[in-house]
Design a protein around this nucleic acid. Sequence first.
DNA 1: CCAAAAGTGTTTTGTGTACACCCATGT
DNA 2: ACATGGGTGTACACAAAACACTTTTGG
Lengths: 296, 296
Amino acid sequence: MGFGNVSERRSAPPQVGVSVVILALGPEHAEAQDDSGRSQLWLPLVRRVRQPFLGRWALPGGNLRADRSLEQSAFEALESTTALHPRYLEQLYTFGDPDRSHGGLPMVSIVYWALVEREEANGVDRGSDLADAIGRDDAGSDSSGDVSVRATADGDGNVRWFPEHDLPPLAFDHRAIIDYALERLRSKIEYSDVATRLLGPTFTLRQLHDVYEAIAGQDIDLANFRRKMLASGDLEDTGLKRREGRQRPAAVYRYVPRRPQDAGSAYAIDRAVKRDEDEPDTVDSALAALIPSARG
Amino acid sequence: MGFGNVSERRSAPPQVGVSVVILALGPEHAEAQDDSGRSQLWLPLVRRVRQPFLGRWALPGGNLRADRSLEQSAFEALESTTALHPRYLEQLYTFGDPDRSHGGLPMVSIVYWALVEREEANGVDRGSDLADAIGRDDAGSDSSGDVSVRATADGDGNVRWFPEHDLPPLAFDHRAIIDYALERLRSKIEYSDVATRLLGPTFTLRQLHDVYEAIAGQDIDLANFRRKMLASGDLEDTGLKRREGRQRPAAVYRYVPRRPQDAGSAYAIDRAVKRDEDEPDTVDSALAALIPSARG
DNA sequence: CCAAAAGTGTTTTGTGTACACCCATGT
DNA sequence: ACATGGGTGTACACAAAACACTTTTGG
């Protein structure tokens, strides 16, 4: 029990916190698309209310509690700052270089990344009205000088969505962290189901295709994409049809991995979500939630 | 909700430490090979000198210092416990579930993994002189970890190498952590130069081939392997010849990535190695050292 | 009937694998 | 010369890319 003499703080250990990079697709037909009409990734940022970097935009974050798993801490940070409900949550990296605090206390940040489905991102947080819901991209300018600090009041102003390609200046090394998260997303899309986490539980092949193009940032042959996806055997036809445009309706699919697969992260979410009462993690479950897939 | 950032700590934060999974190839012709005569991976463990898990084998570890980067802390932990000099060092994952301490204080362990080249691993340690290796405390344990414990420099018995497939019972969740590190190694071998880090700076294609087989745990067609490696364009013929067996000598190659590549980790090592005096990291360099490659 | 999107076929190109074979070297 | 490991050639299976084509739907 009391072996770790808490009293010994010799070379003062750094502070530790959690941050989360949250990603979602922008609204479908808004200006939330790039030149070529593709959807884009958007992410919510929060305005800092203290030094250093007071007034700048930063990643949502929170504290670590000794009685919570890291995942839970990340989930709570995400939820309490943005009121969002992620469909995917995975540890990204732990940052701790001494100088990243830029005047603050030395800080170790355990960073997670999360995916939120388009519907929720555009509905919940943008106040259910698409138009003004989306943080118009005066974003870039806004951050420029405005250091006004909204009251710590709940609702608004302190959280805003920005498109991946038009981020404001960020606090600390958060910009680089976001880039790293995007890189991770782009690589994981090739061998896991992350793409589906940006859509609802069911989707058409075209929708899925659009997600892939949004993330890859380039055109992908639709015919080949369709064949490849279907050949993977992980898509199950729900039998339903859904019309996106105004022409022929498309088949609706559901993602159903055949192998144990990358169940890790999905499980992680389930746990974080349904854990009201805590039951202790077993080492195994902790690890299960950890091991993302065959390819670390 | 006032914590849109990473700087405020309140409910008792957990302790934080660093641990390292160190991997190297076993000696060439010893029993360090599996049934089919393949080389195997070995790793050094340290014996715990306190509760919980007193007497059990565990990963080498150490403390975090607020004035050191995580990488440096990992490097120091590695060096001070095993006296080894890694050719590769990369962050693996951060573990922090509340129950992983099993009776100790809640503990967050930032785990790194490292590769040591066969020569050094076998030279320094195997055999009988564990000489300067010291049994320091590991992080997963009681962070209490005072750096002074290492004074028990009696020198040996506290560090020992074990083959991957014959590990003793381990403390905490260290067994699962090791498995995760092996998984990471097995996946990274496909798209980075990690394999070469288990050999010296130069090597023959057969040596490299053996490393791949050792890591994959299965036979790999030598002819195709050779072609694939040469086609990658990352191997440079040194013009030298080296005889492994007693027959025809083989061409000696050096790894020379053409693209910026996965320079991250190599750089990380360089930094850790040459840092006697500290110069502050820039955020950029920290990130450069971080981003392992195209595939997170 | 037309436009637009869903969905299919077919050819070409490239990559991985199996395995037969030749070459260089020391005994 | 011959055994051993170094090194090359080649044929086949299969997956990915390119792109022409057919089908279904709403106007």
